[in-house]
Design a protein around this nucleic acid. Structure first.
Lengths: 163, 163
DNA sequence: GCAAGAATGTTATCTTATATCAAACTATAC
DNA sequence: GTATAGTTTGATATAAGATAACATTCTTGC
């Protein structure tokens, strides 16, 4: 595997999103089983809603979606599912947007780097080892012990730069 | 200048914070003059409050501080000052904390990279050109045009790792 | 001084997230 | 199979973060 690859996003025209979601679901089940955690119907629903596109989704939008199939869900319902999914590495929170998105490669421990299109909202998740190790190097220089990385780049995707 | 330097933070024991703030204020005045903007008393006060430490400050904490010297300030008072200061490049918002911090090098256009100590709350601002250009390289590969970077690393500073 | 624009004040409201306690469900031990 | 401990979800309330909209005051250039 190359040290830098686009794991997800910016390919909406080409890929079969049904397969994409099905894969994500299978992978999520596997991860939960491995961790001895339960992928309950509620968690599954929230996960599916997040994967309905490669765009980040806001918690209260999830809540509104949930309301279509559940009886008057309350915020904690969504936040608890999101917390669980984040804990399991199945979902990322985009801090710069206060929004959530399905993780493109949940199997491996990582935090990911995100390129967020300001125009169409689509997000690509990258995982560049070189970038991570450069950060580790910087941290080491000042004696800092890294626990968590938030790397979110916003701008315009290729499509949205067309005139 | 090295391609990677700590601009601010994690040096609390050694530096004269009075000088530090005085420098920041002078620099802020210069930047505003250069931009033809007004560094009003309110903006100055908010700026000073932000520079009272190298820790990020929350908007509502600023508001509470302001309330000590101003008559019942409301949220927009603080948010407007923060918006202005961010616009001028004098202040950064830390998205992962919903908090704000004075910029260590306001003269130059940059977005900065932050190392945030989870224990003591102190933040170091770095500016690593290599890191930035690595991100640009990644972006170019997928045809992405970068507008803005959010890079926030949390963990433990050297001090807080001591047993 | 006066008009135009900038900055601040004021009130209300919106968005995002969590605390707390109760009820329902699940798995295991007996 | 049922008691029980632990986990998950339901429900209510509220905390925390941010902005909209309009009024007033302050600055600046004429």
């Amino acid at each position: 595997m190359p040290d830098n690859m686009v794991i997800q996003g910016f390919e909406s025209a080409e890929h079969d999103h049904g397969d994409c979601v099905a894969d994500a679901l299978r992978e999520a089940e596997r991860v939960c089983t491995e961790r001895g955690e339960r992928f309950t119907p509620l968690r599954r629903t929230v996960f599916e809603l997040l994967w309905s596109s490669h765009k980040p989704v806001k918690a209260y939008d999830l809540l509104a979606q949930l309301a279509l199939t559940h009886d008057r869900p309350a915020p904690p319902t969504v936040y608890r599912a999101l917390d669980f999914l984040q804990e399991a590495g199945l979902v990322h929170k985009l801090e710069s947007l206060n929004a959530y998105i399905g993780c493109g490669e949940p199997g491996r421990r990582h935090q990911g780097q995100f390129m967020i299109c300001e125009e169409c909202g689509v997000v690509a998740e990258l995982d560049d080892e070189t970038l991570t190790s450069r950060i580790d190097t910087n941290a080491r220089k000042i004696g800092f012990k890294v626990n968590d990385e938030t790397i979110e780049i916003s701008g315009l995707c290729r499509q949205c730069q067309q005139p």
